[in-house]
């Protein structure tokens, strides 16, 4: 489906998924460099990734259950 028609159908969803790509991929891709600035290195990156992903996964189900609020 063309992006224009998709935008007319659900503009909030189109903006949301685009920014989801920008924010999540951008932040997680550069997380190792961020933790290097703390002099933590690879271990910190893994723990940081795990911390954010843990609640990203655990939070998914209740979040989507309450999405109709």
């Amino acid at each position: 489906m063309p992006i224009g028609r998709l935008y007319k159908l659900a503009p909030a969803a189109v903006i949301g998924v685009m920014l989801a790509g920008v924010i999540n991929t951008g932040t997680l891709a550069l997380l190792p460099i961020y933790f290097e600035s703390f002099s933590i290195g690879g271990g910190g990156t893994v723990r940081g990734w795990a911390a954010s992903s843990f609640n990203g996964l655990q939070g998914g189900c209740p979040t989507e259950s309450s999405a109709d609020w």
């Binding site: 159908l9 969803a13 998924v17 989801a20 954010s52 843990f54 990203g56 939070g59 998914g60 999405a67």
Partner: peptide, 19 residues
């Protein structure tokens, strides 16, 4: 980061459901 992940990593699914 746990709080950040709870919001930033879950709203993609909500946007899809909305569409």
């Amino acid at each position: 980061l746990v709080v950040w992940g709870a919001g930033a990593l879950t709203f993609f699914g909500l946007c899809v459901a909305h569409a």
